[in-house]
């Protein structure tokens, strides 16, 4: 992991300021979803190798949720965007 994350709001900040939530694709199911869906969400992971997109929270900064796109085999960070803004665009 690169030591600095380029927050779109705060600029380059040390990665210890952030909290990782996990892969963007892993979304919380509806409260009344069936047990299999919940089991899958809570316990199973794709755990992909290579280029991934994750939710990172800038806990010790602007406290915005960000999408960090990075390669988990060589620490390259490609892109950091605001999760809300990404959502409103799509």
């Amino acid at each position: 992991m690169a030591s600095l994350i380029e927050c779109p709001h705060c600029g380059a900040r040390p990665k210890e300021e952030f909290t990782v939530r996990g892969n963007v694709e892993r979304q919380r199911p509806a409260p009344d979803a069936d047990p299999d869906t919940w089991f899958d969400y809570v316990y199973l992971r794709d755990n992909p190798m290579g280029r991934i997109s994750e939710h990172w929270h800038h806990t010790a900064g602007c406290r915005r949720w960000l999408i960090v796109e990075r390669d988990n085999t060589d620490h390259t960070v490609f892109n950091v965007t605001d999760a809300m803004e990404a959502k409103s665009k799509s």
Binding site: M1, S3, P14, K15, E16, V20, M49, E54, N72, H75
Partner: peptide
């Protein structure tokens, strides 16, 4: 552990 998912066998300075 460093705390983020990784397949790189090298950690972070922090």
């Amino acid at each position: 552990i460093d705390g983020y998912n990784s397949y790189a066998r090298r950690g972070n300075l922090a």
